[in-house]
Amino acid sequence: MSSGMIFGLTGLAIFTIGLFGALVMVEPLRRVLALKLCSVGGGFMLVVAAWRAPPEVADPVPHALVITGIVVMISATAVALALIRRLHTLEHDSDD
């Protein structure tokens, strides 16, 4: 058992929980959060893949990929949340 093994399984579990949430949840905001959980799970796998037992240094290439992924994810989140706000406004207006 090592840190990499523990967090690798954690990352897989988080990815699966996020996948389940994205499939089952009906609330838009919660579904976006579930997809974010998926992305964190994916990030976990890359960080674990880069990890080496302590005396050795970690592989910087997957780290750069995860940082890229985080920035892409905030862009996707911002667009998804803007769509949710727009959708809400449209639904709210039709009620009047």
């Binding site: 840190s3 990499g4 967090f7 954690t10 905001l29 976006v32 959060l33 974010k36 964190v40 990030g43 976990f44 960080v47 674990v48 880069a50 990890w51 080496r52 302590p54 240094v57 970690a58 780290h63 995860v66 940082i67 985080i70 920035v71 994810m73 905030i74 989140t77 911002a78 949340l81």
Partner: peptide, 26 residues
């Protein structure tokens, strides 16, 4: 956890962008 996996850069980005800004947006 990512600090424990010796990825401090990624941890910083996750805390600042993935958590802080995303949380504010939500």
């Amino acid at each position: 956890a990512w600090v424990r996996l010796s990825a401090p850069d990624v941890a910083l980005a996750e805390a600042a962008i993935g958590t802080g800004l995303a949380g504010a947006l939500m």
